[in-house]
Amino acid sequence: MKTKYGFKLFSIQEFENYIKNIKVGRTVLYIQQHHTYSPNYDLCNDINQLELQKGMKNHHVNTNGWSDIGQHFSTFPDGSIATGRSIENSPACIYGFNANAICIENVGNFDTGNDVMTRLQKETIVKMTALLCAKFNIPVSSDRIVYHHWFNLASGERNNGAGGNKSCPGTAFFGGNKVADCESNFLPLVQNVKNQIPTPTPISILEYRIITANKLNVRSLPSYTSEKALDRDAIPLGSVLRIFEEKNGWYKISSSSSHWIAGRHTEKVTRATVTADTLNIRNGSGSNFSIVGSLAKGTEIFITEEKNGWCKIGLETKWVKDTFVTKT
């Protein structure tokens, strides 16, 4: 492993150990696949991966005005993997579809006629996707493993590439960037690898709660006087956490470690699934309010408030009709 500019560079074997042991508070439901387009293979060599990662962060912060690099991980032609933004933070990679997601940027231009993906990068992309699915109990399906090409750039609506979309992760990415290409060429490879990864015993979740503080410290015991947990960062605003135990207004957020958060800085949320083919998101709790986006069938959401037959999603002013969601 190599460390530079605040990033870590792993081989796929090192990444497997890293992702197995890392503690993550927020609930992860989706994996995004992207390509960088630029930098492409012309700029890559065997020693400059973290320089390229730093360059991407500089662009995202200084040009785009984001708070950090957009992606959680980047893969490179030699099969190595660089860390990016904290895994506790949502990515800045698909407008309208970043909550509860992990973003993978695959370095290269994988549109037809450009970079031909190396065998090592292919193997890394497949295996790390399988490892993330195993880590976060994500089904290997096109509902949960998504391509940027499937989302309209202006509205965030999932339209599966019907118009107003990037080509990302590339028209030649594992045989194509359409949903059918993903289901035929990419997902079976991921499933085959995931089948070889030991599946942990399912653990009962008491409930879900969303963080309402800007950042919430994780403590080793259910008390403000206890020490902060040393092996995980504070959890940011809007993160949805799995709760395994409650004690005197404190919530245990790990099934294997003594990690607790203060309940006063959280709200209970309800997990639900979209049942309509396309569900409009409005900026208020009524059909007279403006449409600000839409959700595709099968999308998972977290409801923070219900009013007059409408459900508020997360902490933003976004509402959907309750007759088109099923609580899970």
Rank of each mutant, 00 (worst) to 15 (best):
Q13W: 10
Q13V: 15
F15C: 13
E16T: 15
Y18H: 14
N21R: 12
I22G: 08
K23D: 13
V24K: 03
G25V: 07
G25A: 13
T27S: 13
T27Q: 10
V28F: 02
Y30N: 05
S38Y: 13
L43I: 12
C44A: 14
I47C: 05
I47R: 01
I47L: 05
Q53W: 00
Q53M: 11
K54C: 05
K57V: 10
H59K: 06
N62M: 12
W66G: 06
S67I: 09
D68F: 09
Q71N: 12
T75W: 01
F76I: 03
D78L: 03
A82D: 04
I87L: 15
E88K: 02
A92R: 13
Y95F: 14
Y95C: 08
N100F: 14
A101E: 05
A101C: 10
N109H: 14
F110H: 06
V116T: 14
V116E: 12
M117H: 09
M117I: 12
T118I: 02
L120I: 01
E123P: 04
T124D: 00
T124F: 01
V126Y: 02
M128P: 10
A130H: 02
C133T: 04
A134K: 09
P139L: 05
S141V: 01
H148E: 15
H149T: 14
W150S: 15
N152C: 07
S155H: 07
G156K: 11
E157D: 15
E157W: 02
N160Q: 12
G161H: 09
A162V: 01
N165M: 00
C168L: 03
C168R: 03
G176Y: 02
G176W: 04
N177K: 05
N192F: 11
I197M: 03
T199Y: 08
T201G: 03
P202M: 10
P202K: 08
I203V: 15
Y208N: 05
Y208S: 02
I210C: 10
N214Q: 11
N214Y: 07
N217W: 04
P222H: 11
P222Q: 10
S223R: 12
Y224Q: 13
L230R: 09
S239N: 08
L241Y: 08
I243D: 04
E246K: 15
K247P: 02
K247R: 11
N248A: 14
N248T: 12
G249L: 06
W250Y: 08
Y251T: 02
S254P: 02
S256C: 10
S257G: 05
S258W: 06
S258Y: 11
S258L: 07
S258N: 15
H259I: 03
E267G: 02
K268R: 15
T270D: 09
V274W: 04
T275G: 13
D277S: 15
I281G: 05
R282S: 06
N283P: 08
G284Q: 06
S285R: 04
G286W: 04
S287T: 14
F289L: 00
S290Q: 13
I291E: 06
S294Y: 04
L295D: 02
L295T: 01
G298R: 01
T299Q: 08
T299P: 01
I301C: 12
I303D: 07
I303C: 11
E306S: 13
G309Y: 08
I313K: 00
D322E: 13
